[in-house]
Structure formats: C-alpha cells, structure tokens
Design a protein around this nucleic acid. Structure first.
Lengths: 241, 241
DNA sequence: GGCATTTAAATGTCTGACAATTATTTTGGC
DNA sequence: GCCAAAATAATTGTCAGACATTTAAATGCC
C-alpha cells in the first residue's frame, strides 16, 4: 500500500490542527490563542513556522491578530460580509478556471435564484422594491457602459434575493449571482437587449408587488433563456472572428 | 476626514496584490511566480514576509508550491473539490458563529435544494438513483448512530442535487447541504422519526424515477417541515432542562 | 484623584544560516 | 557513444536571534 500522504509542511499541519479545533467548537469566538512564542514551544517549531500557520488561518478569516500587550490571535467572528466575500472569490475563480460553459453557469445561477421567489413574494418590503426600481432607472440611462449595466443588474438581483428575508439564503445566492459577473461582462448589451432585460426586470417587480409567484418565476425563466441566447451569440461571434 | 485604513501588514498587502493579479487574469493557471527571494527584492521586504504572503494565498488554494530546482509557487487550478471544501468550511462556520436559528438555516437549505428538482427529474440517472437507494438502506439499519444517520442523509441529498447534472449547481448546493450537518447532528433521531424521514426519501426516489417533479417537491416540503419540527423540539427540550 | 511616564507583552519585520528537495548537468566507466 | 552515478544549482522549508512597533497595564508624581 502506497503512502498517499502529500507530506504536508509543518506550518500547514499546525494550521490544520487549529482550524479543526475551531470548526469542532473546541475554540470559541473571542478566545485567544496562545502567543506565537508559546505555540512555537508547544509544537516544537520556530516562531516563523507558527506565524506562517497563523497567516493561513487569517486568510480564511478564522482568526484576527491584534498587536500590543494582551494582543494576540483571536478566534474571529465570521460576519456575513466576510463569508460572502470569500465565497464570491472562490466561486469566481472556479467559474473562470474550469472552462465552464456559459449555459451551465447560467442554468445554475437562475435555478438557484428561482429558489427564493416564493419567499420573496411573501415577504418583499416596499423598501426593497424601491431599491429594485432605482436600479431599473439606472439601467435605463442610455449612455451607461456595459460594466455599469452589469453592476446594476447584480444589485437588482441581490435586492431580489434579499426580499426572501432569509440572510442565509442571501449569503448563498449572493455568491452565485456575483460570481457570474465576469462572465456577464463579456456580453455586449445593445440598446435592444437592454430594453428587453429592463422589461423583464419591471415584470419581476410588478409580480413581487402583487405577490404573484408565478409571474415572477415566468419572468425569471424568460430572463434566463434570453441571457443564454445573448451569451451564445457572443461566443459564436468570437469563434468566427 | 479620518483615514479609515486598518493599517494592513506588509504580508497582507503583498498577498492582496498577487490575489488581485490572479482574479483579474493577469496571472494564469500554471504560471510560476518569481522565487521568494526575487519577490522579496521586488517588494523590498524580507523573505519571511513574502513567505507569509504566499501562505495566505496557499490557504485559499490560489497557489501551490513545489520544492526543488525550478520549483516555486504556481497559480493553482481550482478544482471543484477544493472549491467545495472551502465553501463548506466557510458556510459551516457562518452557521455556527452567528446564532442562526435552526428554522432560518433549514428554510434556506430546502429552498436551495428545491431549485434542483426540475433539472433532477429531467436528467436523473439510474446510477444516482441506485446511490440514493443504497443510502436509504444504510439509514434503515436499526443500530445506526445519529452521526452515521446524518452522514448518510447528507450523502443522499448530495446524490439528489447531482441528479441535476450541473456541476456548478452541485458545487453551490453541496455547500448549503453539508454546512447544515453540525446543526443536524444536534438532533436525536428516534426510530419513529427515522422511519418518517426514510419514507420521504423513498418518495423522493420514486418521484425522480417517474420524473414527477411535483411529488418530489411535495416530499421535500414535507421533509423541511418535519425537520424544522424536530429541531424545535430539541431546542425546547434543551431550554427546559 | 488625575495625568504623564515607564514597563512589559505581544505582533511585525529583518537577517543570516542551514536542511531538504529536485531538475539539470557533469562525470566516469565501459 | 551510451548509460548510470555523482555533483551542481535553484528553490522551498525551517530555525535562531535580533530589533521595531504597538498597546494595555502599572507606576509615580502632583
């Protein structure tokens, strides 16, 4: 039997040990780790090695460090903001690096987004509907760049998922919606296609307003099909170039 | 105007610079970064500082390092497996650290899971149905521990989302399903409740087999309601203890 | 009691060294 | 000339020690 262990470095091993302790709940939010010098003694390594381990954990927002007396490494409270930022980074890279077809990525994104329509229709607030209407106004500006149009599109859809009034759902969906932005940015939006998209956005807001799930779902399905069409035409144009 | 910058350390600054270059596509998969010594020269810092920066990136699976001549730090290809592992870690911590109510977490999880039923009914394969049946058999063993029951439950639901035949969707849903496991592990499953859950699992498989989306959705909705009931009874028992 | 100063503990960084690993190059034998 | 073994060089992994910087607490002065 071959030994399949990839010979992890000491700093990776120490980081894993601490990470496991955090995930398993043996270390709680706010707890302070021993000082770097103490950790070095405990694990029988140098301070530099401990520091590399701690930087790995800091990169995952698992700990934060404070300088000065009674400073040190503290188990971090993972906020929705930090968690979402990490998820967006990971998802964006995954889509960018794995030669995902635009169609597959789009299908996943809209499937996930539809999962919030029932709750959104039930719980939507006037404030969020106003946010969505404001983004529609932004998108209607004729001299908008494609990037700005995409950014407003993302903001619109984030408001839509926030309508569901479930922050865990918002966290997951934000990752899937925002990670699509680089792919969407490849599309050139003509005045014609923008008008069509804005019309569907209006239909979504109208459906939410009267709490009509079916019409929201229908608008989203149409939007998905239309977006895939746009994406494919871009790919075709690129192929024949 | 106060300067709100939190005074990032040099290693964090260097890590951010390289991370941005990767996300923006200036560094491509397989590219090799300069050696630690060269990076230290370029940024005017010591090798130790550069190493801390690189460890931060390695913790996000953005780079991998190889030792030896012509080794170094290479831009990593982010696999689904790595991306999912990271997402599960982040989501698990988010749920564990933010005093999320069991009901909110459960609602989000099943809402997301329902997003794959239409595609799953359309594309389910016999192999995946067999996997799901095998997990049902595992769950039926009378002397199963609660942890093993939960693990099999997760495997069952992962097979369900894989039925959708969209790897991006599987990646996102795996995060939301697996992150619930620690919360599910708090529940004590009686023989009665296990039987009920297994019955619903059978209904899901049966629905997929005949490609009947409605029955699958109904079974999932029932499962969601039942799971929330179980969770609330645990919380009530814990409160009165 | 209140304020300024000192002190101590901790992280952030630098330097220089050596160990371990590995692709390449050189050498040696035939 | 060819192949195997040994030397070489480049690179990461680790260590030890030092100094700089930051910050809370302790101290001392008035």
């Amino acid at each position: 039997m071959k030994n399949a262990e990839p010979e992890k470095s000491l700093s990776a091993t120490i980081a894993d040990a601490i990470r496991t302790a955090i995930v398993d709940g043996r270390l709680l939010v706010g707890d302070r780790l021993p000082s770097e010098a103490e950790l070095a003694d405990q694990h029988g390594v140098s301070r530099a090695t401990v520091r590399e381990a701690l930087k790995r954990l800091a990169a995952q927002s698992l700990i934060r460090t404070e300088r000065g007396a009674f400073g040190g490494a503290f188990i971090n409270h993972l906020s929705y903001q930090e968690a979402r930022a990490q998820q967006v980074t990971t998802s964006t890279l995954l889509l960018g690096m794995n030669a995902i077809s635009f169609q597959v990525a789009c299908e996943a994104r809209y499937a996930l987004e539809r999962s919030c329509t029932a709750l959104a229709a039930e719980r939507r607030t006037d404030a969020l509907l106003d946010t969505m209407r404001a983004e529609i106004d932004t998108q209607s500006a004729p001299d908008l760049t494609d990037e700005a149009f995409c950014a407003s599109d993302v903001a619109f859809h984030r408001a839509l998922v926030d309508c569901a009034g479930n922050e865990v759902l918002s966290y997951h969906l934000a990752g899937s919606v925002e990670a699509m932005q680089p792919l969407m940015n490849m599309i050139t939006f003509t005045a014609r296609s923008r008008a069509e998209i804005i019309e569907l956005h209006r239909a979504i807001v109208a459906g939410l307003e009267i709490r009509d799930v079916v019409s929201v779902d229908r608008a989203l399905a149409t939007l998905e099909a239309y977006t895939i069409t746009l994406g494919q035409s871009v790919l075709k144009a690129r192929a024949t170039r």
